[in-house]
Each structure stands twice: as structure tokens, then as C-alpha cells.
């Protein structure tokens, strides 16, 4: 299992549009991907769950990848977060 932490810099947080992009990015990998905030962890491939975290600017999230291609997934998702969120 691989994981990383990231603090959201986008002033709007993980809103509908970026949430959609993020879920799409996560769904591209065969491994399990989760995203957690304040101890609440959800499946990163399910958009309603991701939205339900209500992530805003300045909040830290933890993303975990477990399974096939977890190395690539972690690297690519971290890059995605930095570019989009």
C-alpha cells in the first residue's frame, strides 16, 4: 500500500467539477483508491462519497492506493492533485 497527504489549495475545495475529475483519475487504476479527511475514509472511485467529505481549501486529505499499479497510481494522483486542487 502507498499513500500521500495533500493540503487543498484550490479556493473552492473539492467542488463538483474537480471532484468529477479526481474520481475519473482514480478510476483509471485497477488498485483500490481511498481518500480520507479527519479520519473519514471513502472510496475515491465513488463521486458521492468523495463529495460527502466536503473538502475545502486548507484541509488535508490522505490518499491511499492498494493493489495493482499502486506506485503509478500514487505518483499520478499526487501530480493530479497538485495541478488541479
Amino acid at each position: 500500500m502507498k499513500e500521500f497527504n495533500y493540503t487543498i489549495t484550490d479556493p473552492e475545495g473539492i467542488h463538483a467539477r474537480p471532484a468529477g475529475l479526481f474520481v475519473k483519475a482514480a478510476a483509471a487504476y485497477p488498485c483500490n483508491v481511498t481518500i480520507a479527511k479527519d479520519g473519514k475514509e471513502v472510496d475515491a472511485k465513488r463521486i458521492l462519497g468523495v463529495m460527502s467529505l466536503g473538502v475545502k481549501q486548507g484541509m488535508e486529505v490522505t490518499i491511499k492506493c492498494d493493489g495493482d499499479q499502486e506506485d503509478t497510481a500514487v505518483a499520478e494522483l499526487e501530480k493530479f492533485m497538485k495541478e488541479n486542487l
Binding site: A19, G20, V23, R46, I47
Partner: peptide, 19 residues
């Protein structure tokens, strides 16, 4: 594209397994 994205998000919601 930015404004069209909402409809894509709606499609994803319909595919959401929780839902």
C-alpha cells in the same frame, strides 16, 4: 468545457455504486 462539466458529473453520480 468548464460549464459543461456539471453534466458529466451528473453522469458519474448515476454510475456511483453507493447510489
Amino acid at each position: 468545457e468548464a460549464n459543461a462539466m456539471v453534466f458529466e458529473v451528473h453522469q458519474m453520480m448515476l454510475d456511483d455504486l453507493d447510489y
